[in-house]
Amino acid sequence: MISNFSATQALKHVTLIIGALIVILPFYAMLSYSMKSPHEIETNTGGFFGDQKPMVDEWCVKANNPSGVLPSEELKQACTKTPIVFNYVSAFTKAPLVRYLLNGVFVTLSIFFIQVLVALPCAYALAKLKFWGRDAVFMLVLFCLLIPVHAIALPLYIMLSKVGLINSYAALIVPWTISVFGIFLMRQFFMTIPDDLIDAARIDGMSEFSIVWKVMLPCAIPALMAFAIFSVVAHWNDYFWPRIAVTSDRNYFTPPLGLRMFKGDSDGDVYGPMMATATIIVTPLIVAFLLAQRKFIEGITLSGMK
């Protein structure tokens, strides 16, 4: 490194570091705010971790003091917490965050499994079976690749509300059950698998169904992994469609919808718990990304294969 040192090299690093600081700033702010007391957030003091001076949790006082008279000292004492505990506990207690997170996991995984269930047989048929109309189906796939689902959200919303599915898990999942991109990707992948393998399986008496799930699926694991990351990241982070599909019933809220509820009441006290919630929502994917960077970058840029 030292031997390579030169003015240009230094300039490059300075540029890259300034960029990195701007990129990291909101992550830093989010983590820092999630640990600070409302007062520290307002005055921007306390450094990164905050002073962690115990503070009185006003919500806790209010909840345990329904009469509204001056709260007793014992109650105040009982409701005193350090800011970090206050923020993270409030994140889970002010809103049913666990439920939102479970909804997010359920919706995201359901979408992925249904996508695979629908796409894999079709991709196999397109890649390895000869039948009349195959080219037409493939043309249809190529055409549908052009349609972003977000763009047709409104008619989907109308159709779903006509069948009474708005505010349900089905509403969150149904529009994404068909991944044209998944079909295309798996078809391209299956094209590279030798026909002999399939013929051998047929000679062994395997049905076409078991060929798809017992021969093709295991072969396709690397491509499927990338597709899984692509799909899971997109739907865990998606805000637009859940915002439309779930209009009122909080039972079906996904994590971003739950987080959005913190903004609205402009009460300054909410910032800490809001940032704690944001941290909780963002962390799983960031950690997974840091652990398996190569896989993630491959998965997210999958669409580059189109």
């Binding site: 700033l25 705010y33 982070n237 959005r260 940032m275 960031i286 960077q293 993630f296």
Partner: peptide, 30 residues
């Protein structure tokens, strides 16, 4: 650098938008 620059792509945009909102708050914001 590549890892750092890719972080925003992974994070839920809504969450980060709310963080930016707070960071850009006229009086309180960092």
């Amino acid at each position: 650098y590549k890892t750092i620059y890719f972080l925003p792509v992974m994070a839920a945009l809504l969450a980060m938008a709310l963080v930016w909102d707070l960071a850009l708050h006229p009086t309180v914001g960092i």
